[in-house]
Design a protein around this nucleic acid. Structure first.
Lengths: 248, 248
DNA sequence: GAGTGGTCTAGACCACAAC
DNA sequence: TTGTGGTCTAGACCACTCC
């Protein structure tokens, strides 16, 4: 019935315990492959696979030519209930800024803006015609020095004001600008899935490809229409999403 | 700059494409390790690692002594916006039943009931004293023949009625019983994280340990108090969570 | 140059499923 | 009994980092 003892998992478990016990602060590498091979009397391949398990868990970071390092255990960012409230917009904060602010982080955000025609999917989500011009805002968001969230926002160009084309859309972000332009926001709809970081995303986040991420799609509604679709990718092990649901 | 070509990933990519092209319907195994070794002129270890990549992605299932099989591509269950609405309870459906029903699935649910004293964490979440007796309902939920969700619900025993101790709590579930007992539900609070399936969970779900799962914690509130905490684990690649957020 | 991780080889024995 | 995946061995060469 029982398999072989599985030394790989045993070694991974021992290393995991050491890491969680704080034995490997930043800058201190874990034992090298050669060292593990000797210490645990296993082949290099087994030692390698043990470390690979920890990498898949997001516990360690492998640096070629340098070593294996424990990833800092950072407290969670909380994607808060109130992040889309009008009060927060009035205070000049966008959704991500609200999240980071609540968690005591220093938010940073890099934006690029462009226009492009709507794909069939986006046209459907925005309830417009395919090919209609969209204002696209790509954002890379960091907490401290770590990239934790990517977002691509799509607005029908027809309702975009000149300042929405600016990289810095001003206090309160796009939602505040939309309301100033007479598009009073009524509600948001969010769908949440689990995805795996693509190679490019993984590089941006500084994690292994395939690492679990949240994939959110948020649609912003006025009472009349959809005014924005926002596709958001969040590093899975850095966020807790919070929602309030009325009992109705 | 460039590494070795990485045959492992190449092979995984080729197999992945075949799977998505529908080359491996249920019952038809992928090429065996020996076959891959020969066809791609690689070592058995490389062939094995290529398949391992697909397993980590949840694309295939490995059956010892039998073969590697593509997991059926099933449409998503949708954890819907209206799943906690009073209208659904009135229709005799619980939250999971609502989800499954909306997706056209046949829901099944196995329940075990017990009582136990509140841990510190649960006492804090329920706003009661540690050690106070709790009614605990463990549920294993399936859509069709596949287990897709586990949930453990905690209620202060002080507010539990006899029928809540029954395995079948009746139409509309516990929430309906709570309202009948005078605890009118006001709102729910949900937090969502990404976790990795523990060994036991993985066996129940029939997936590899470490597979990404949703971990939800739902708290049910009346205007007076917290009446329930529900810890839910959902198979990550089978659910889309949907939420409505008022702009306030 | 020495040491690290990245990748791969060419075997091996085992438990298990299917025949 | 045959073939499958589960696990492991004991090496190897490479690109890269650090000294």
């Amino acid at each position: 019935m029982a398999n072989r003892p599985n030394r790989t998992r045993e070694i991974a478990a021992e290393l995991r315990a050491s890491i969680l016990a704080g034995d490997y602060p930043p800058g201190v590498p874990l034992p090298s492959r050669a060292e593990l091979t000797e210490r645990f009397h296993v082949s290099p391949m087994t030692a390698r696979n043990a470390v690979e398990i920890l990498r898949a868990e997001g516990l360690v970071e492998l640096k070629r030519g340098s070593g294996v390092y424990a990833r800092a255990q950072r407290p969670m960012l909380r994607s808060a209930r109130n992040r889309l409230s009008r009060a927060e917009r009035a205070a000049g904060r966008g959704a991500f800024t609200t999240d980071a602010h609540t968690g005591g982080w220093t938010p940073r955000c890099e934006v690029t803006v462009r226009t492009e025609p709507a794909t069939d999917t986006l046209a459907d989500q925005l309830d417009i015609d395919p090919g209609e011009e969209l204002l696209v805002r790509d954002r890379t968001m960091s907490a401290g020095f770590e990239v934790v969230q990517l977002a691509t926002s799509y607005l029908p160009a027809a309702i975009a004001t000149p300042e929405m084309h600016e990289e810095d859309s001003g206090p309160g972000g796009i939602y505040a600008r939309l309301e100033e332009a007479g598009h009073e926001l009524d509600r948001f709809e969010e769908t949440v899935r689990i995805g795996q970081a693509a190679v490019e995303e993984a590089e941006t986040f500084g994690v292994a490809a395939g690492t679990a991420v949240f994939r959110l799609t948020r649609r912003a509604f006025t009472t009349e229409r959809v005014v924005e679709v926002n596709n958001i990718t969040m590093l899975g092990d850095r966020f807790t999403l919070a929602y309030d649901l009325p009992a109705q």
